[in-house]
């Protein structure tokens, strides 16, 4: 990478204090990314979502965050105030969550929600907003953009809702999209269409993408680079084409524990949970 990195996270720790003691959810995570497609893969509780949310400053209130630095395009996110974060969120970093049912406001039309992004960040006037919204809806694959503009979220299917969400996030031409399990609420056949749409938009607009998922196959297909997280640590970083050659035993175990269409096995390999994988921390980073 010759350009200045888009995101730089160094020595990030996130912990929670609960009734039963302190929980270290993210431990010493560091990575840099440019305008590329970065996948973060891990099982539930691995800290993958927290790491990404930290970039937008939308962690739960009881989270304790420590880091050497978190930088987004030259801006120190870790020391930024709430006002500065608001300018970043939505304007320069867009976020796509798991279920459009919950991330779209059920009382507003698609048009209202898309144009609102424009007015919040004062990007342009209403006519411009509307024109842009229609453009984007067409770009994400709606042939009847005018009808979609006038509809409410409940009138859209899950896949349509998620595509509308993508369009909404693109209204302000952000530099980075964070997609947290964007397709796990969708049916398998719809999943690919949504991911293809997202992928096309990210490439065309030369944006960065952070794709968080538990699905190794999916991330391998849609990302350039993959971070594997386990218990709050990045255990391995690799380029997607090299996934088959992963060295870390945890990554290997993840790959081997999936039932696969192209290979018949009698028993699936399981994880040896006693192994001390975290000692391999940041290997290959």
């Amino acid at each position: 990478m010759t350009e200045q990195p888009l995101v730089e996270i160094s020595a990030l720790d996130i912990s929670f204090t609960t009734k039963s003691g302190r929980v270290d959810a993210v431990r010493g995570v560091s990575f840099t990314m440019g305008r590329e497609r970065l996948g973060i893969v891990g099982e539930s509780g691995s800290g993958k979502s927290l790491t990404a949310r930290c970039l937008l400053g939308i962690l739960p209130a009881n989270a304790e965050v420590r880091s050497r630095h978190i930088v987004f395009d030259g801006i120190r996110v870790d020391t930024a105030g709430e006002a500065e974060m608001r300018r970043l969120r939505g304007r320069r970093i867009g976020m796509i969550l798991q279920d459009p049912k919950y991330s779209l406001n059920p009382l507003l039309t698609v048009s209202q929600q898309l144009c609102e992004m424009f007015s919040i960040h004062r990007v342009g006037n209403r006519a411009e907003a509307r024109a842009k919204a229609i453009d984007l809806l067409r770009a994400v694959g709606f042939t009847d953009a005018d009808r979609v503009m006038a509809s409410y979220p409940h009138e859209l299917s899950g896949g349509m809702g998620q595509r509308a969400m993508i369009a909404m996030m693109l209204m302000t031409d952000p530099d980075l999209i964070v997609a947290d399990e964007p397709t796990s609420a969708l049916d398998v056949t719809v999943k690919l269409k949504v991911l293809d749409t997202m992928d096309r938009m990210v490439r065309e607009r030369r944006m960065g993408l952070v794709l968080i998922s538990h699905d190794l196959n999916l991330v391998a297909a849609y990302c350039d680079r993959i971070l594997i997280m386990y218990r709050g640590r990045v255990v391995e970083t690799l380029n997607s084409p090299d996934l088959a050659a992963a060295r870390h035993p945890y990554t290997r175990a993840l790959v081997d524990s999936l039932p696969r269409l192209d290979r018949q096995v009698d028993r699936l390999k399981t994880l040896d949970r006693g192994a001390d994988w975290t000692r391999w921390e940041n290997a290959g980073a």
Binding site: V23, A25, S44, G45, G47, L50, R231, D272, R273, G274
Partner: peptide, 10 residues
């Protein structure tokens, strides 16, 4: 999010 209690930790 504590790591899930697993067979190994039982």
């Amino acid at each position: 999010m504590p790591a899930q209690p697993t067979l190994a930790t039982t």
